[in-house]
């Protein structure tokens, strides 16, 4: 998968592109998170707009990322989930632990 990084205000937005299902996808995702934390970027917003599918392992990586950010006293949120992925976040109750937003404006605002 491809991941582009940009900053809005003091929020680092990671634009995820592609599915999160293969070991390579997992590594790319985890490395991107590690890189941002290495730069002390602790306000992370994952943009799922270009993500079509995430399997259970991918979900595990998202959970792991949320835990690592929290360990650094940071906050991780997600936005622009496709309906299937939104359902997944719902029935796994991840929505209760990771803030999920429908658009970037609300998501960035939530960090203030």
């Amino acid at each position: 998968m491809k991941i582009a990084t940009r900053t809005v205000a003091d929020v680092t937005i990671l634009d995820l592109m592609g599915n999160i299902k293969s070991p390579g996808d997992m590594e790319d995702f985890s490395k991107a998170i590690e890189d941002e934390l290495g730069l002390n970027h602790t306000k992370l917003l994952l943009n799922f707009h270009e993500v079509g599918f995430i399997n259970s392992s991918g979900l595990g990586r998202v959970v792991l990322a949320a835990k690592k950010v929290a360990a650094k006293a940071g906050v991780m949120r997600v936005m622009n989930l496709a309906q299937d992925i939104d359902d997944l976040f719902t029935f796994t109750r991840l929505k209760e632990k990771i803030g999920v937003f429908k658009n970037e404006k609300d998501a960035v605002e939530s960090f203030r």
């Binding site: 979900l59 959970v63 719902t90 029935f91 796994t92 109750r93 991840l94 209760e96 632990k97």
Partner: peptide
Amino acid sequence: LQINGGLVGVFDFD
């Protein structure tokens, strides 16, 4: 059968 429960083994406080 909709009922939302968290992932098992992730957060011990769930």
